[in-house]
Design a protein around this nucleic acid. Sequence first.
RNA 1: AGGGAGUUAGCUCAGUUGGUAGAGCGCCACCCUUACAAGGUGGAUGUCGCAGGUUCGAAUCCUGUACUCCCUACCA
Length: 892
Amino acid sequence: MSQISDRYNSQEVEGRIYSWWEESGHFKAQDRSTKPPFCIILPPPNVTGFLHIGHALDHTIQDCLIRWKRMNGFNALWLPGTDHAGIATQSVVEKELKKENLTRQELGREKFLEKVWEWKNQYGDRIYKQMRRLGDSCDWDRSCFTLDEGVSKAVRKVFVSLHKKNLIYRGQRLVNWSGPLETAISDLEVEHRSVKGSLWHIKYPLEDGSGYLVVATTRPETLLGDAAVCVHPEDERYKQLVGKSVILPLLNKKIPIIADVYVDKEFGSGVVKITPAHDFNDYKVGKTHKLEFINILTRQCRMNENTGPYQGLSVQEARKRVLEDLKTQGLLEKEEPHSLSVGHCSRSGAVVEPFLSEQWFVRTEQLSVPAKRVVESGTTKFEPESWTKVYLHWMNIIEDWCISRQLWWGHRIPAWYCQDCGHITVAETDPTECESCQSKSLKQEEDVLDTWFSSALWPFSTMGWPTETESLKTFYPTSMLVTGHDILFFWVARMMMMGLEFMRDIPFRKVYLHGIVRDAQGRKMSKSLGNSVDPVELIEKYGADALRFSFLAHIHSGKDFKFSEQRTEGYRNFMNKIWNATRFAMGNLSDFTTPKNGTKALPNKAHMSIYDQWIIRKLARAEAVIEESLEQNRFSDAASALYSFVWYEFCDWYIEFSKPVLSGTNAEERQATQLVMAQVLNRVMRLLHPFAPFISEELYQKLPIKGEACIVDQYPNPRIDREFLGLATEAAAFEVDVVKEVISAIRNIRGENRISPALKINVRLSPNDGEMQKILGNNRNSIMNMGRIENLDISDEGSEAKCAVTPVIVDTSQVKVIIPLSGLVDIDEEVKRIEKTIEKLIKDITGLSGRLNNENFVKNAAEDVVEADRQSLAQSKIQVESLREALIRLQS
RNA sequence: AGGGAGUUAGCUCAGUUGGUAGAGCGCCACCCUUACAAGGUGGAUGUCGCAGGUUCGAAUCCUGUACUCCCUACCA
């Protein structure tokens, strides 16, 4: 071990360890097991996508949970899978085709799909490979893809079943439409961006020639689809005109003036043009007032045959032409700058048009009822809890779900139109004839399903449903769902509805929603901003463990967080610290014989040092904090308890305390410390494993005390091996506290007086009683070692002239640390140091005595609080007195 | 507009039942003290957004207010 590099080389370790785990079958879960089940289904990433930083966060949390549960004796299943990601994948492949000057239409449906499958086969396992780099311990044998045969069967069955229950229907609705992709897109895929536009005021002449109404609009081209103009029913300016008509400019068509409270009297001119087929609000008005729905766009979002002379123009061109024409005719009153938010297609970047079309919908009213109830009753819990409200709020205003997409890549809707009678046959297996008229002339629906439709079935479709498999029996409902809060509605809510409908049970007991990873400035990471970080690059640079640790140490209650590479670097250093601490231990364990009873082996109590006892005590405390934190999914608390224990207790103090013991002449003491060190490291590696699986496994394998594999060894907690943890005594803890305080006092004097660490100095420790005298004597070696002392005198006799002095008080025991300064440094520095300390103490004393002099405080506050104040007041007073004396002697 | 979250050290954030404010990074000083310079030791830094209230005592509870962010919806 001592020949091993003094730097941890993650790149050398990770691949090797991962392959070994995988070959050993450690990731596999059992369909039948006596162990309790714990199951997480992986939110399926885009099959041809890259692992991005958001996945890395998401996966790290899940893997941490899975590894922790696995080590705790659970039959832990992390079920991986990928999503065909309809629109995303299709548009990527279309872009590729464009490079060859091809369109999907030119290629035809079948050929195009072949291309997409080729693409999928080429890139389909890229993300799985990247997940392995991160250390994801998925049960790979169970991997699913949303277009797999089994999953597809489930999709069809669900569709048919919902259709039969009249929970799926077909209808004409206004949907978000992407022109370039020629498909409806979901609300999720619409990005609202603030755009600087204009508000144009257009004159609509009254039919009777008595003047005109001014209509304000941001979209003048849509006037070609106007079906009415609308005013507020109580608007005195226009009240008398309601029921009359105006002439629609350019098309010279008569349209009615109607009244509706939807109109805001204060905005613009108070008159609104109503374009029912191209605006969501106008759509509603159109429905209430039974207006004509005039579609003015083609599927490519160009002006259609209803727009007369404007036919064939793009929306932008039409707007320009319409404005020009209005101006020529003197109908454009004015143009005002106006900013508004406009929906853009997240895939193509194009402006999204509200577009009237035939689509398939899921009726959500009925499905949402149980999905609400289980959350209200707490059967499924959200973490953080605040999402419960958000979820319920959304469930209350939920609208029917448009599930058809005019794409080719996806699950083609299992509906067949009869060319003869028009009947729609919906069936699980491709029908050969119309179920109504038995005609053989059938044509399958061209549309495919929204990607989220198959995702909604994920918790059970991945386990073999509709077959009643052992997997389903064992693992459904799943234990937990971990995902970003950005897909709460689109995915989580829909899985709830589908799970309850088809499994008659919740899909998961708990939903853990974490935040979104943002860049250092707090912006969402995205390709277009160029601010995204590649997790694989980070893994190559700092190691997977460092990356994982920086996530786990930093996620707090589901809040978004800003990613900084610096932090990852910091945890890389932590991994290196662990590496070197182990390296040190191994260097001192060369003559250590591995005990037969392994982790049950106990050191000889009589020969244990107080440091051994102290570190065991600290370990037990850290284990308790870690366990409690993990139980509550407070990963950062667990991570920081681990970090502090390893660095600030084990490395900073225990290793230093152990040096004199390990290099000392007392063989029995040395053996005891060796065993304690080996035991503590063994537990540290296991504790660390869910957070930093690679380094912990690698080092674990090198330890003299170890099990088969860290990944499947028992996760430590204060109830495991109680005999070992019980070896710590309170007396030892007190003693170590005293020694630490004394050493810190010496170091403080050295540091403040700028005494070089290279220089060994003389120190006198003046104890106030025999007990203290004994403690100091027992720990002579450590104090000299860690205080860098040439001669240590433990005695209450001697001069304090020209000396630096610090009184140390632990409970009621006192010791004065005295360091002669003459010839060493200028005493002015020491004067300053003492004065600064006195000042601080006086401030404390003022505060404390102020409180204690307050009758009400003494009367009302808890007794222990008052007592603690009294004690620290007394201590501070003693310290000040002692320091004042020292100051006088120093200056005399 | 509705819903949610936030405002604490230069930066990123902790702070569980009210009891004299914490961490990491950064900063300053001194050190290659044989596990680790990806390190060691010491040090500095905050009217806890603002204003009230409850209380012996408020970062923490209540009320109001300013600002920021997110989500949903959207002003034609």
